[in-house]
Amino acid sequence: MPHDSPPHLTQIAGPHDVAPGLREELIGCWIDVTNAGGAAGFPFPPVGQGDVAPVMDELLGRLDPRSGRLLVARVDGELAGWVVLKRDPYRLVGHWGTIHHLQTHPAFRGRGIGSALVHELRRIARDELGLEQLRLAARGGEGLEEFYGRLGWREVGRWPEALRFAPDDTRDEILMVLAPL
């Protein structure tokens, strides 16, 4: 089925705002993204429900209108992708946030879902949370720095060979920032 409709974005600001069934959809998306090779938090596929569900429950439990948001993209009613924004809890760096777990379901890749999520997250960070900059860490060797670069992010550093997937597969962790918002 072609998915030609633009994504509909929904912001979730607290654990009690998670609609029935959404938790299972998010877990299913995370499993599908990871098992398709996506760099979304589980580096060693395959993963299943038992791996992802406890991490999802922790993530959803930490949502808070002041410090953590979940943004969900749907196309024609189907979950197409999601991302998490967290404000740093420490006053010294409380003016910035971090994005985590940006993912687009494999069935929706190449449709601008990830870009739409990042653009809206930027707006939420600036207009609703009063943040001044965002940061993220991305897995090297996946082309993610190019993706984020097209959206205005810039690389500010690397942790060389920080990520070891196998004895012959060690990659940099790429540190990126988006400022000003």
Rank of each mutant, 00 (worst) to 15 (best):
M1Y: 09
M1T: 10
H3K: 11
L9K: 11
G14M: 00
H16T: 11
D17Y: 08
G21R: 01
L22P: 02
R23P: 05
E24P: 13
L26H: 10
L26S: 01
C29W: 00
I31W: 13
V33L: 02
V33G: 01
A36W: 11
G37E: 12
G38L: 05
A40P: 04
G41K: 10
F42A: 02
P46H: 12
G50S: 12
G50Q: 14
G50Y: 11
V52P: 01
V55Y: 03
V55I: 11
L59T: 12
L60R: 03
G61K: 06
G61F: 12
R62I: 01
D64V: 05
P65C: 03
R66S: 13
S67F: 07
S67T: 13
R69Q: 08
R69A: 04
L70K: 01
V75W: 03
V75T: 14
W82H: 13
V83C: 10
V83P: 05
V84P: 01
L85D: 03
R87C: 05
D88M: 13
D88I: 04
D88F: 15
R91S: 09
W96I: 02
G97W: 07
T98G: 03
T98E: 15
L102H: 09
L102P: 12
T104L: 00
T104K: 01
H105C: 02
A107C: 01
A107M: 00
A107D: 15
G112P: 08
I113Q: 02
G114R: 04
S115T: 10
S115I: 00
V118R: 03
H119G: 00
E120D: 13
E120S: 07
R122H: 03
R123G: 07
R123L: 09
I124G: 05
E128Q: 14
E128G: 08
L129V: 06
L129F: 03
G130I: 02
L131N: 02
E132F: 02
L136G: 06
A137P: 01
A137H: 12
R139T: 10
G140R: 07
G141Y: 10
E142G: 00
L144Q: 06
L144W: 15
L144N: 10
E146T: 14
F147I: 10
Y148P: 03
Y148W: 15
G149E: 13
G149W: 15
L151Q: 12
G152C: 01
G152S: 03
R154N: 07
E155F: 09
E155P: 06
V156N: 04
V156K: 05
V156W: 11
G157V: 03
G157E: 09
W159G: 01
P160D: 11
L163K: 07
R164Y: 03
D168S: 07
D168A: 05
R171D: 01
E173N: 08
E173Y: 05
I174Y: 13
I174R: 05
V177M: 12
L178I: 05
A179D: 08
A179V: 04
P180E: 04
